[in-house]
């Protein structure tokens, strides 16, 4: 059951990857990359349950934070041209 859900989410990520490649603007790409990142969080949680290793959830929690911060950093760099 969990592996079926993980497969479906991976296929959905492939669909979003199409938008990341196609564009047409850099903001569409940022949106698509952010969505793939949030799907990765759920995928990590599901993998933790499939292999019965709850420590994956810690990785998922940290990944959720990192994903948001990397999106913000990218947008800031895009707008200002520097990160300080």
């Amino acid at each position: 059951m969990f592996d079926a859900a993980a497969t479906v989410i991976t296929l959905a990520a492939v669909l979003v990857l199409y938008r990341a490649i196609k564009g047409p603007r850099v903001y569409d790409r940022a949106l698509a990359v952010n969505m793939i990142g949030t799907k990765t969080v759920v995928l990590l949680a599901l993998i933790g349950f499939i292999y019965k290793r709850p420590h994956f959830l810690d990785i998922a929690l940290v990944y959720a934070l990192m994903n948001y911060i990397s999106t913000l950093a990218f947008l800031k760099y895009r707008e200002k041209g520097r990160l300080d």
Partner: peptide, 29 residues
């Protein structure tokens, strides 16, 4: 831990899409 991830998603996901929208709006899309 799962509940924490859910709360985090509910706060962070709209905030991320809002920040992307604002960046695009300021850039004049």
């Amino acid at each position: 831990k799962l509940f924490m991830i859910i709360v985090l998603i509910f706060i962070v996901n709209p905030a991320a899409s809002h920040s992307i929208a604002k960046a695009a709006y300021l850039a004049g899309v």
